[in-house]
Design a protein around this nucleic acid. Structure first.
Lengths: 211, 211
DNA sequence: CAATTTTTTGAGACTACTCTCAAAATATCG
DNA sequence: CGATATTTTGAGAGTAGTCTCAAAAAATTG
């Protein structure tokens, strides 16, 4: 037994392969049926390993789900950090990150659906994204670019918008262009005026509005 | 057996009392554990009736959940329709309805939690509220008061905001005042400018903003 | 390659739930 | 009140899933 202070006892290649099968199977199955709607039996079957192997690697379904999220989320974070090499305008930076986040999910629906289900089931998911959004909005406000009363409420609404619009697009109920429309509405929330919000959210399109 | 065309064969008082017990038990238990996280066994126990009586009244948990929602939602709709006796400004009307909606839920947390869980589990819930929000926003846009690109996306974001802010307040993570802050941000989304959004969302408070 | 350690395997014990139905209780009615 | 119809009851059969552990298989090591 590894001592509790030892964070990672190097895992044998064999064990690592089994873990990998489970993590990948979990991403697929949980993406389809939700974290709570999935049984260990299903994941074990999809992964092609035995019950024993599941328990040899994870203590519960939730632990496995957390591992799936942790692995993928790290990749997404790296991707998002790489976008604006050095963008000084918080509005442009936020717009790019938000838009890319939604587009990542819709270009990889298995991940997108997993994320939506995990968001409802794992507190860690909301906490992770909340931290990042809060940081971005706080900087924008500190610089005077964003104007709003409550940081918490603005963060809550931003996260809710990201997830809801992502879901609607994945369901095929809204077009991909909804991502840019969402960004425009979020910028307005942050106190950016209508014309500028349109320009930033739709860099190429003419900023015409019905209304 | 009543013919399928007959919508409602009048239910006997005895049967009605059993239904009532089940509906009220379901509201409580599902509010706490979620629609999907609740078993028939739990509700039956909470209601103090037998398994047989459950099946004599409802075909499934989901059917019972729908009945709970249908009954309560009707009451809420009536309440919301009664608010602005004749408010012509769509912005003021929307602000009042949205704020009252959140306040209804937080003043009756059992209902609030049921609603949040049901929103995730029953398609009918989202459909019901969506219809109403869509109607209100569409009128506001037609009158020229609201300006936005996509009605669908704006509706999606509004519903997401209502549910998310309601949840955060019920969790005790945001103050009750978050409801008004939310309304202010939603009005900005609809194209109302900052000063006016502040005035409408916070009728009594001085409209001072940090930023 | 034989001994040792690690990992996998899956049948089986257990738990939790769903759904049924014959009998009992209750309500209704002439 | 006695006869009939309605409703409730709960034990029990069936299903689906969790978790365990002794034995088998595979990997590692001297």
């Amino acid at each position: 037994m590894p001592s509790p202070t030892q964070k990672k006892q190097a895992l044998s290649p064999t064990r690592l392969r089994t873990r990998r099968k489970l993590v990948e199977a979990a991403l697929r199955v949980m993406g389809q049926k939700g974290v709570e709607g999935t049984s260990i039996a299903e994941i074990r079957a999809e992964a092609g390993v035995s019950f024993g192997s599941f328990y040899n690697n994870f203590g519960s379904l939730e632990e496995l789900a957390q591992e799936v999220f942790a692995e993928r989320a790290m990749g997404v974070a790296t991707e998002l950090d790489a976008i604006p090499p050095a963008e000084s305008d918080p509005a442009i930076a936020a717009a790019r990150v938000q838009r890319r986040f939604v587009e990542l999910a819709i270009s990889d629906p298995v991940w997108g659906w997993f994320l939506l289900h995990a968001d409802a089931a794992l507190p860690q998911v909301e906490a992770t994204f909340r931290k990042r959004v809060r940081h971005d909005l706080d900087r924008g406000r500190a610089s005077g670019r964003f104007i709003f009363r409550s940081l918490d409420t603005t963060v809550t609404m931003t996260l809710a918008a990201l997830m809801a619009v992502m879901r609607r697009i994945l369901e095929g109920r809204e077009p991909r262009s909804a991502a840019a429309d969402m960004v425009e509405l979020l910028l307005r929330q942050y106190g950016i005026d209508r014309e500028e919000a349109a320009r930033i959210a739709h860099p190429r399109r003419r900023a015409t509005l019905r209304g």
